[in-house]
Amino acid sequence: MSRLYLIRHGKPASTWGEADEDPGLDEAGRAQAEAARDFLLSLPPADRPSRVVSSPLRRCRETAHPTAEALGVDVEIDPSVGEIPTPKALSAAERPAWLRGVFQGRWKDVVGDLDYDAWRREIVASLQARGDTAVFSHYVAINAVMSQLEEDERVLVFRPDHASISTLETDGASLTLVAKGREASTGVL
Rank of each mutant, 00 (worst) to 15 (best):
R154G: 09
E122D: 15
A70I: 03
A129R: 15
I77Q: 08
L149H: 10
P79G: 10
D109L: 08
E150Q: 14
S137A: 14
R100T: 14
W98P: 05
A118E: 15
D74Q: 10
A144E: 03
A134K: 02
H138W: 11
P85C: 00
V110C: 07
V135R: 04
F136K: 09
A118H: 15
E122V: 05
Q104K: 14
S91G: 05
V124T: 14
A125W: 00
A129Q: 13
Y139R: 13
A125G: 02
F136P: 03
P96M: 14
A144K: 06
S137E: 05
R95M: 12
V135Y: 04
A64N: 06
G82W: 09
R95P: 00
V157F: 13
P87R: 06
M146H: 04
I84L: 15
R106E: 15
T86I: 10
R61D: 00
P85R: 05
W107Q: 11
I84W: 10
D132L: 04
A70R: 12
G112M: 03
L149K: 11
P96L: 14
I84N: 07
G101M: 06
Q148K: 00
S91V: 00
D115I: 14
E62T: 06
A134L: 03
E150W: 15
E122G: 12
V75I: 13
A68N: 04
A68S: 05
E69G: 01
